[in-house]
Design a protein around this nucleic acid. Structure first.
Lengths: 190, 190
DNA sequence: GTTTGTCAATACGCATGCGTATGGAAAATC
DNA sequence: GATTTTCCATACGCATGCGTATTGACAAAC
């Protein structure tokens, strides 16, 4: 029952944002309309006015996430002209504690829902694709760039999980920073 | 309702094995006693004779997995005396389609259950530890070995997910093999 | 052959969580 | 100011899935 003060009435976007918060921390399966309603300070009656069912809510939320994430990448990564610098920036961005990463990690978990799998595939493909492009941009041939992109992206995905699993062990912020640096030097040629 | 022919009556191990099969393909949340009972050709009545509840079943199944996995590592990895060869063997083993890997991947997904998180932490720690040892065995100092172990293990975890997510894209068996080789050469010094 | 122990079937209670039906209050529109 | 829209509350039906209670069949022990 968070009192977001001013707003008189809710719109779909409010529900989507609240849903993403749940997805980020507890996964898709934990999305329960009555809980999110409570979180927003209303009841189910409100929800079914804005959405037709739970699945629609989740799909809308994921679309929003996908769109927002794409925007961040465009602004923070593609704005860098030099491929080498761009790759380094990507690795550093990956290590930052953004909600977007948490969501990606939980989606990997809830892949059994076909609509989750769909979004996941799209996002992953796109990310692999721009990684590959960047590696080609520093001189790798296509095949090699593809493998290196896959390897790099695996490191990203793996890291997301390790961070959660180890939770407080190698968690000291400076260590993360230095680890990200280390990874970048290992995977991007000097 | 798989007809496993001969056996007259079931024992806990039968339930655990069937449970691991469900966990491997659908995750911990999908473990439903009535379904597994059906799979074994019996009903709930049988289950509650062998186990006190669902949670006990899952914990027992995960213990079994942990034990079996440890045995495989001991036999297939630690039996290799040369650290360099041992690391290479580990990377290749990681790319093989074993149920154990599937289970690990789904556990990463169902971390919200505290008993899953516990097993996961234990297993991950142990694996990181023997990777680190092996990297020290080829001359890395402790700090460096630790980072490299984390990096390598992240690649493993990431790969598990990518394989599932991409499902049929870079799935050609030979490609996996060659990718594993590529990864090994990237992460283990010649 | 009677008794006891092992394993399983059936039937029930109960909690959770989705979706629906209906009614009501406040704001926008006329 | 009356009416329509917008947004939400309450109450219900219904499915799923856990756990329990009770009974029964078959085998081993005595």
């Amino acid at each position: 029952m968070k009192n977001n003060s001013k707003k008189k009435s809710l719109n779909p976007a409010d529900w989507e944002v609240a849903t993403l918060e749940v997805i980020a921390h507890q996964g898709v399966s934990a999305v329960a309309v009555e809980n999110i309603a409570k979180e927003l300070g209303v009841t189910k009656g409100s929800f079914y006015w804005h959405f037709s069912n739970r699945k629609d809510l989740i799909i809308a939320a994921l679309k929003r996430w996908q769109k927002d994430d794409k925007a961040v990448i465009k602004e923070k990564i593609w704005s860098i002209p030099d491929a080498h610098e761009r790759l380094k920036a990507w690795f550093l961005l990956s290590a930052q504690p953004l909600q977007s990463h948490l969501i990606y990690a939980t989606l990997l978990a809830d892949r059994q829902h076909e609509f989750v799998a769909k979004v996941l595939k799209e996002v992953t493909f796109e990310r692999l694709s721009y990684l590959q492009q960047s590696f080609q941009g520093i001189g790798y041939d296509e095949a090699r760039a593809k493998q290196q992109a896959l390897l790099s992206y695996s490191v990203y995905v793996g890291y997301l999980h390790m961070a959660k699993t180890m939770h407080g062990k190698f968690q000291d912020t400076e260590n993360i920073e230095s680890y990200a640096q280390y990874v970048a030097t290992q995977l991007i040629p000097a």
